[in-house]
């Protein structure tokens, strides 16, 4: 590698990492937090079989999972202004990522809810608890433990998917890289560099996942009595 490319890489490192810290991470965290709320509510109305709302939840999951994320971004950011609805790039990205991720995670949470043995529910009824009390205190905590690894998976996928927000002018890591490439004409080195920074983010999340799993596993760990 010649010195010019090396200098470009070291110069650009902070210029890429900074939008990563100020844009990619907030975008991921905010979107995922909202997605979790959507996912739990969507999964619960399906699990409980609330009539009408259940069909609505299925329809939502069907539409969102059946259309490309990029198309959804374009519809919200470039399409809605046609109806007079103009949303700034960052909130538009948050809305799309939250709705998109929420649909996938809803299926994860629903499957996890269904994996909790029915006896847990029955035992709750028998000690006098109501449906909602049992859900909140017994079933949901157990389901979230089961759902934790696949949800971590979704979170890691989302970190990388936020690069699509560059298409709707959110100045996150990938767009920052594109700008430097336009100035320096070193696409190979710079795109590999930004790829490595994504890898770094994902690695941190993988480590956090492992720590999280360890803590969540406490009540299932078999110890000698």
């Amino acid at each position: 590698m010649n010195e010019r490319v090396w200098n470009i890489l070291t110069d650009s490192f902070m210029k890429i990492l900074l939008p990563g810290l100020t844009m990619t991470i907030p975008l991921t965290v905010i979107s995922f937090a909202i997605a979790m709320v959507i996912a739990v509510v969507t999964a619960m109305v399906q699990f409980a079989g609330v009539r009408g709302v259940k069909q609505l939840a299925r329809f939502y999951v069907w539409v969102i999972r059946g259309t490309p994320l990029l198309v959804q971004l374009y519809v919200i950011f470039y399409g809605l202004p046609g109806l007079g609805i103009i949303i700034d790039p960052f909130p538009a990205a948050v809305i799309v990522f939250a709705i998109n991720e929420g649909a996938y995670c809803a299926e994860t949470v629903r499957a996890a809810l269904e994996s909790v043995p029915v006896g847990q529910m029955e035992a709750g009824y028998c000690v006098g608890m109501s449906y909602l009390q049992i859900m909140r205190r017994i079933v949901l905590p157990q389901a979230m433990r089961t759902a934790f690894p696949p949800l971590s998976n979704s979170l890691i996928a989302l970190v990388k998917d936020t690069s699509l927000a560059a298409n709707i002018t959110v100045l996150e890591m990938f767009m920052a890289t594109q700008r430097i490439v336009a100035r320096t004409y070193e696409p190979l080195a710079l795109y590999i560099e930004v790829g490595l920074i994504y890898l770094l983010f994902s690695t941190v999340l993988t480590k956090l996942q492992r720590i999280g799993e360890k803590r969540l596993n406490t009540y299932e760990k078999k110890e000698t009595v």
């Binding site: 043995p117 006896g119 847990q120 029955e122 035992a123 709750g124 028998c126 000690v127 006098g128 608890m129 109501s130 009390q133 205190r137 017994i138 905590p141 157990q142 433990r145 009540y219 299932e220």
Partner: peptide, 28 residues
């Protein structure tokens, strides 16, 4: 009333003591 199941059905995410107090604190 109270019910004792064939396969116990203890709340898996609660300790022995929490299993016993859950119905008192939450339901009652």
């Amino acid at each position: 009333t109270a019910f004792v199941f064939q396969n116990y059905n203890l709340f898996r995410n609660k300790t022995a003591l929490q299993n016993v107090t859950e119905g008192l604190v939450i339901a009652r």
